[in-house]
């Protein structure tokens, strides 16, 4: 991408983000209630999106070749175990990341 194309992409990222943040305040005034389907999506969509984002991060992992995704799955296991144990976001993320870096740099 050229610098202009990167700047345009950044503008789109910002515009898309701000659209999602500002739209409810523009559409629903202080007295009206949002439609029920929107409320339903507000409850259920986040869980589906987070599943999708985890898969998105792993999209380039090849299970049938190379390291078979072992560093990824071990590091996710460590992140999960740390988080269920201490429930501290920073510790879980830092621990999982350091474990992954050790795995890909020294072992696999």
């Amino acid at each position: 991408m050229t610098t202009a194309q990167i700047l345009f992409s950044i503008a789109l990222l910002a515009f898309g983000t701000m659209l999602t943040r500002f739209l409810p305040f523009m559409v629903f005034n202080e007295k009206s209630q949002p439609p029920k389907f929107i409320k339903y999506l507000g409850n259920v969509l986040p869980a589906a999106i987070f599943s999708m984002l985890v898969v998105y991060c792993l999209k380039n992992v090849h299970i049938f070749s190379g390291s078979h995704g072992l560093p990824e799955f071990i590091a996710i296991g460590i992140t999960t175990a740390l988080h269920l144990w201490k429930r501290q976001m920073l510790l879980s993320i830092a621990g999982g990341t350091v474990a992954y870096m050790i795995l890909v740099q020294m072992i696999f």
Binding site: V54, E72, A75, I76, T79, I93
Partner: peptide, 16 residues
């Protein structure tokens, strides 16, 4: 190498 795993770990934590 592997620093970008912070992204995966963040989503795993949010997912949990």
């Amino acid at each position: 190498e592997g620093l970008d795993f912070a992204m995966t770990a963040m989503f795993v934590v949010i997912f949990i």
